Amino acid sequence: MATAFPCRVQTWLLLSLCTLSFGCESRSKAAKGEDPVPVSIAVAEKKDVPREVRAFGSVDASSTVDVRAQVQGLVTEVHFKEGDFVKRGQLLFTVDTRPYSASLAAAQAELLRNRAIAEQMRVEAERANALRQEGIASDRDVAKANADAASSAAEVKLGQAQAASASLNVAFTRITAPMDGRTGALLVYPGNLVNATDAQPLVVLRSISPVYIRFSVPQEHLSTIRERLGKEPLTARVTPRGERAKTIEAPVTFLENTVDASTGTIQLKATYLNAEQELWPGSSVDVVLVMGKDEGATVVPEPALQRSQSGTLVFVIGQDGRASPRPVNVLRTTETQALIAYGLEPGERVATDGLLRLRKGTKVAEAAPPAKLAASTSSEQKRPEGL
């Protein structure tokens, strides 16, 4: 036990000397550039890049109508199924017509009576005026006859109005579609009592061709949007959520007249014909507003940029395989790309990863792309023959 401690100390010293020797040797090799740093390399390209603003939006029906009853009565029949597409003027509901038909018949009968009385009063007035010419009738008799005739004529007009109102009520018992559209959930059924003052509609009808896509963008883009709308139409690319979603393009047709002060955004609206019903009212969509393009821009992958307090730079890989930092002016960036205003030419190679390990003159080697997962998995799971 007395010799155990010295042995341990000797072992520790030996390991420490080996570690120091290995570290010094590694730093010596790195200093001489013997071990190139593996990096991914991309080539700067010259191409046209669209100027885009991404936003979240929602789909609105171009028209929404609450179908309501205009008279009180029992629903006797529903002439459609929930979700049906209906045409303007198509019969949707029938309300019990019996009380309104009876009122119409009474109004028409009263009108006939008033017309007969009015005709009699007219004849009496003409007779009184003729007798006055002969000096037989007095002025008082003539005035009374003329007043009775005028009153009877007014009664006829009142009867006509009452008959027209009763006829209108009968027509209101047939509730038709006010426009082309798709019906929603049925909210009343045969036997329900409906009234013109009901808060709940009978059914909601929505026009889904065309549809509107509403979305908002930051107010910083307002001047560009106004300028573009004055010259040529803006286009929005719209992608619904969910699997197998189809991206469509729709022209921007509306710009709100005020900026939302609470969010600092301006609302826009695009109109889409929606003939195949790709978009559904109320659904959320991803919107990309296309505001022109930068033609002939020098483009590199966005990860190639290294930002610092002194500015933005990229590591250009020379023909000798060494990295050289170069300041660049970035016009703008997208999700995956960086547009270079100046400082880099098309065709030059830049490093896109491992930037923190690079210095001026660092020797680099292009890293091999990762093997496909499917291929490696297939080779690993390959069964031996005979099993």
Rank of each mutant, 00 (worst) to 15 (best):
T3M: 12
F5C: 06
P6S: 02
L13K: 10
C18H: 07
S21K: 10
S40L: 12
A44L: 02
A44N: 03
K46E: 15
V49M: 04
E52I: 06
E52A: 04
S58C: 08
D60Y: 07
S62D: 10
S63I: 11
V71W: 01
L74I: 15
E77Q: 12
V78Q: 03
V78R: 06
F85V: 12
F85C: 12
K87R: 11
R88A: 13
L92R: 02
S101E: 15
L104W: 08
A107G: 03
Q108R: 13
L112V: 14
A116L: 15
A116G: 12
A128K: 05
N129P: 08
G135F: 00
A137T: 03
S138H: 02
S138D: 05
D139E: 15
A149I: 02
S152A: 15
K157E: 13
G159R: 02
S167P: 09
N169K: 12
I175N: 00
T176A: 10
G181T: 01
V194R: 00
A196V: 04
T197R: 11
D198W: 00
P201I: 00
V203G: 03
V203C: 06
V203P: 01
R206N: 09
S216T: 04
Q219E: 14
L222S: 04
S223L: 13
E227R: 11
A236K: 00
A236C: 03
K246F: 13
A250Y: 01
S262V: 09
A270L: 04
Q277F: 11
E278C: 07
W280R: 15
W280S: 15
A297R: 01
E302C: 11
A304G: 01
R307M: 11
Q309H: 10
G318W: 05
P325Q: 07
R326V: 08
T334H: 05
E335K: 13
T336G: 09
Q337S: 15
A338T: 01
A338R: 01
L339V: 08
V350G: 00
V350Q: 01
D353S: 09
L356G: 14
K360G: 15
K363R: 15
A368W: 08
R383H: 10
E385I: 11
G386D: 05
G386T: 06
